[in-house]
Design a protein around this nucleic acid. Structure first.
Lengths: 234, 234
DNA sequence: CGTATTTTTGACTTGACTCAAAGCAGGTGG
DNA sequence: CCACCTGCTTTGAGTCAAGTCAAAAATACG
């Protein structure tokens, strides 16, 4: 989800839902000993039902997480960039509740659960960071629940593009020019839309001059208009 | 959300999304010192923007939590019964992110945040219980995200009724005969439906002989058929 | 270079929304 | 005790945003 390094920073940060990862990756180098793991595009980081051994911090690349029901219904639950923590949703369970796949070649830091818990017991600051990270995840997902539930298709897509832009910017990339690593189907699943609807929404945004789209490549042309769009009822 | 004590327990427990509160209320009597607080129906437990001082455990009654955007869009994020923990989603923030209102006369245990954090730092078991509770909340909300996103109206309503039944059963009440404490509008907001659609879904379920509805009073007549309904794609 | 995957566009259908109105319970005050 | 609110629920009729189905276009890949 990046590829284009930024020089031009965009307007002011906005109350769009950012993944506010709170859990600073510094922990992985200090208090905690994480083991590196490389994943090729399309490879699973973990699958639902696999025994839960560790949590993961994205270091390079992009991971999508998803949840499926026994009868085949499925939804993407998130797209995760550098610094994001995965697997916290399965703590206290014997196995993973959902799936996680690499959307591009990625590098992950794996933190054995026992180590994490022991570290938290030893170091109150790490403990606080962990709690804050889970709390932030709860807030972030609720925010998406609100957006997905109350906004029409076009504004949902706009919200996602702005969110990705902000998160990439926080990582030192351009907020206005980036390459999507996920398919239209993935986006649709996340936003609760059909892939055709995602395409049409992007086409409309382009026709209005708000963005430029060419397959996976996105350029945000008028970010203030985009932000005005999503902050508006109807 | 109760009123009817149960003698007849229903069939086997099912993998419907239960609030698996993990955080045993025993902590509030032992390690932690909670102060009691009574709330009349309709009163707020907290409002968005209020300074965050404590987390809350429902002891008696029913609380609805919700999240609103600046431009007036709003969604109910959950209905909370005895033993459920509220406020964990705002840890690490200076103020509450959402609202919480009593749906009936309720009693709440308030746990001052500083006490909770200090207790967790002192007692690894409490620490683990807290982490497990937040993890369970993440799982639970994702499960609802899946159901709300992939099921048609009628099946969403059925899922909610089964979920409430299971949770009430876990508290010693009837799983098949209970009184809703929330309005159709609340249910609709939670399930991402209009209140009229909720009504129509309930009517259909009644016409099929699966439930009996009369305003707020619900009787589940054929719980296995209901469960079969929600576990089926289309 | 052919095959598979993803994206785009069009035409048609539909489940849920919107608007409107009537029915029902509960509470209040005369 | 009844009449009158007021808020909640139910039902109906018409509309629309998004879904479905189908096919072509563009790109990636072995």
């Amino acid at each position: 989800m990046h590829a284009i390094r930024s020089t031009a920073a965009t307007a002011a940060p906005l109350p769009i839902c950012t993944h506010a990862s709170a859990f600073n990756a510094d922990w992985v180098q200090g208090e905690l000993r994480g083991t590196r793991r490389k994943l090729a595009a399309g490879q699973p980081l973990y699958r639902a039902g696999q025994p839960l051994r560790a949590v993961y911090v994205v270091h390079v690349g992009c991971i999508k997480s998803s949840l499926a029901s026994s009868d085949g219904r499925e939804r993407v639950t998130g797209f995760h960039l550098r610094g994001d923590l995965l697997g916290l949703d399965s703590i206290g369970m014997p196995m993973h509740a959902g799936d996680a796949f690499a959307l591009e070649d990625s590098e992950i830091w794996e933190i054995v659960l026992a180590d994490l818990m022991a570290g938290a017991a030893r170091n109150p600051e790490l403990q606080a960071a962990l709690t804050a990270s889970m709390s932030a995840q709860l807030r972030c997902e609720r925010q998406w629940m609100l957006s997905v539930g109350t906004l029409p298709a076009e504004q949902r897509v706009a919200t996602l593009l702005l969110d990705l832009g902000l998160r990439l910017q926080a990582l030192g990339f351009s907020a206005t020019h980036f390459v999507l690593r996920m398919t239209r189907a993935d986006i649709g699943s996340f936003l609760n839309l059909q892939l055709e609807t995602v395409t049409r929404a992007m086409t409309t945004l382009r026709e209005r001059g708000l963005i430029d789209v060419s397959r996976r490549e996105i350029r945000i042309l008028d970010s203030s208009a985009l932000r005005a769009l999503v902050g508006t009822t109807h």
